[in-house]
Every structure is written in structure tokens, then in C-alpha cells.
């Protein structure tokens, strides 16, 4: 049964006859899909017959403000302390049964304890084996609730984190996997893993780690000594010529920013990763200007203000971006 659009319009206008109303009611009953058509026509009708013209921009801005004051539900819901590493037996059977009935996302949440940081947030965690993790902003660490690999503790990292791994009595390996097919295997040590869009790197502070590149059929491995850095560059593991300082690279754990000849463009990128700030530097000389120093800041705005002050720059703020330009 097809009902002409004009009947819907007459009905919305209040000009439909009782019989037409009955017809619509029956039609809605016929197929739940007809609701979709009903609301489609209603939306068209409202488009054609607006009762007033709201100002969507003003309302949108206030919605964004409201949204910004609220934490992400996922970030909040996932900060519960980690469950035991391995827990086989009855629980497994029950878990598997439940898993079958749930969608992929929930399944992931069931299999992994997730720790997520919002932009600008740094979180210190202690895993159940005593391993200390400091998760930098805009990062996600997933710890399996059940291990499928005996003798291995494996976590999945997207973003950036430092690990101080506890050595277990049974010499369990600790492995950090990243989405870019790079993984770090350790026994007991302190190191930093960085895995974001712009690159992947590992800096070792203490102990010994093996970094594996799984981008090839024959995995490429590299062993790091304390103080060494390895990056994943064009799908190859490389040791940079200039060593990077672990303290400087992990300054964010104390809300400190340490710049060691980084260009303004790189700083802007870092602010984007950590705080979600869109910092624009159109002036190419300024973008290439290199910074040296250490600043303490808990949010991006503070840091940008300090930079502007120091370098005598003008800050132009729009809704989406912050622009820095020479005065």
C-alpha cells in the first residue's frame, strides 16, 4: 500500500479527514518500516513549513561547551582497577557464553581491561602484577583479562606510555604490542613506548628490552641497551644517531614539556596529540623556529600563552583552532 505524500501533508496540516487518519494508522501498523517513511515526510514537511527559524550556530556552540565540561563516558567507565591477570575455570565458561551474545565492542571490553586517557589527561596505573604504567594523554592501554599465552603478560598500547615492569617469580615475559606491528618484549625494566600516527619509538631507561617489528614475514628484532632509542621508520627498525634522553621524553609524566631543538610545527603536533588542540602556524619561518627549554603546563592553553609571551607572538582564537602568528 502506498499513500501519496500529499495525504501526509494534509494530515500534518490538520486537514486530513477521519478516514485518511484511519488509513495512516493502518498503514503504520502494516510494517514497522513505514515509521521511517512517516518521519521522513514529517521532516520534509517541517522543512517546508518552518514555525520559526532558530539560530543553529549559537545553539551549537553552547552544546559544544556543555559537552566539553563532561568527561567522555568511555574514559570514565574504564578507569576501574584491573582484574586479576589470569582467571581460568568456571569464570571462563561463563564469560565465553556471555561473549557469544554480545556485539564486538562489548566483547572487546569483556576481554580487555581498558584504560583510556582523554586529551590533556595523564594517568598513573598499577597493574595487578605490580607493573607501573604512566599513560600519556589521548592514549589507550588494554590489558587482557585472560591470557591465552602461558608465561606471557601482553598489553596493547595505542598512544604513549612509560612502563616500569615488575619481574615475576616465574620469569613471565612482559610484551607491549602496538597497532603498528611493533612490539616490545621485556623481563624487568623501565622504558617508554610511543605509538601514534606520526611515528613509533621505544626508549629504554633500565634493564634490557627486545623490540620486534612484525611488518615482515621474518620479524626483525633489535635489542636495546639502557639509554638507547629505537624508532620504526618506513617499516624498519632504526637507531637514531643522536640518543634521546629518557627524562626529557617522559617529562609529560610530571606535566612538564621539554623541548630539545623541536620545531614549532612539531610542538603543534604534540599539542594536537596530547590535548586535541588544533594549533595553526601559517608563517613558515615561525613554524621552523626551534625551541629549547622546559615548561611546566597542565593544559595546552597555558603552554601556548607562555610560548606567545616568550616569542612575542599573537594568538588568534577561533572556535576550531588557535593560530600563532608574528606580531
Amino acid at each position: 500500500m502506498t499513500i501519496p505524500k500529499s495525504t501526509f501533508y494534509a494530515y500534518f496540516d490538520g486537514k486530513a479527514t477521519p478516514l485518511q487518519k484511519k488509513l495512516l494508522e493502518d498503514w503504520l501498523r502494516q510494517d514497522p518500516q513505514n515509521y521511517e517513511i512517516f518521519y521522513e515526510y514529517l521532516n520534509d514537511w517541517e522543512h517546508d513549513h518552518p514555525q520559526f527559524i532558530p539560530d543553529p550556530e549559537a545553539a551549537f556552540t553552547s552544546l559544544l561547551d556543555r559537552r566539553q565540561q563532561m568527561p567522555l563516558p568511555t574514559a570514565e567507565g574504564n578507569t576501574v582497577p584491573a582484574k586479576r591477570w589470569v582467571r581460568l575455570g568456571l569464570g571462563t565458561a561463563a564469560l565465553l557464553l556471555v561473549t557469544l551474545g554480545l556485539g564486538y565492542w562489548q566483547r572487546h571490553a569483556l576481554l580487555y581491561q581498558q584504560y583510556k586517557t582523554a586529551f590533556g589527561e595523564v594517568k598513573k596505573l598499577t597493574l595487578n602484577d605490580g607493573t607501573q604504567v604512566t599513560l600519556n594523554a589521548n592514549s589507550l592501554l588494554q590489558v587482557p583479562r585472560l591470557s591465552l599465552e602461558p608465561g606471557i603478560r601482553r598489553v596493547l598500547l595505542t598512544g604513549e606510555a612509560t612502563f616500569s615492569v615488575t619481574h615475576t617469580a616465574d620469569h613471565q615475559k612482559f610484551i607491549v604490542s602496538t597497532p603498528h606491528h611493533m612490539e616490545v618484549e621485556v623481563l624487568g625494566t623501565e622504558f617508554l613506548v610511543f605509538s601514534r600516527k606520526r611515528g613509533n619509538k621505544v626508549i629504554l631507561h633500565k634493564g634490557k628490552v627486545v623490540v620486534r617489528n612484525l611488518n615482515h614475514t621474518q620479524p626483525e628484532t633489535l635489542t636495546l641497551k639502557p639509554g638507547e632509542t629505537v624508532t620504526l621508520d618506513k617499516a624498519r627498525l632504526q637507531k637514531p644517531v643522536l640518543p634521546q634522553s629518557f627524562e626529557n621524553q617522559t617529562a609529560w609524566t610530571n606535566h612538564r614539556f621539554v623541548f630539545d631543538h623541536q620545531s614549532m610545527a612539531e610542538v603543534a603536533q604534540q599539542l594536537h596529540e596530547q590535548f586535541g588542540m588544533n594549533l595553526e602556524i601559517r608563517d613558515s619561518t615561525l613554524a621552523q623556529r626551534r625551541l629549547v627549554g622546559s615548561y611546566e603546563a597542565t593544559n595546552a592553553e597555558e603552554l601556548v600563552k607562555t610560548l606567545a609571551e616568550m616569542l612575542q607572538l599573537k594568538i588568534t582564537q577561533t572556535r576550531q583552532t588557535v593560530q600563532l602568528s608574528p606580531q
Binding site: 521511517e36 556485539g103 565492542w105 581498558q114 588494554q142 599465552e149 595505542t158 604490542s177 602496538t178
Partner: peptide, 21 residues
């Protein structure tokens, strides 16, 4: 064995739109 983290960020399982419409 290496487990591939299934792109944990940006994961979404928005329901499929109904092909009937």
C-alpha cells in the same frame, strides 16, 4: 604468536542501516 590489537581507537560498531530503505 602476536596478537594484533584490533585498532582500539576509533572503533565503532554503528548498526547497519536497513537495506530495505
Amino acid at each position: 604468536i602476536s596478537i594484533q590489537p584490533a585498532s582500539p581507537l576509533g572503533e565503532s560498531d554503528a548498526p547497519e542501516s536497513n537495506p530495505k530503505h
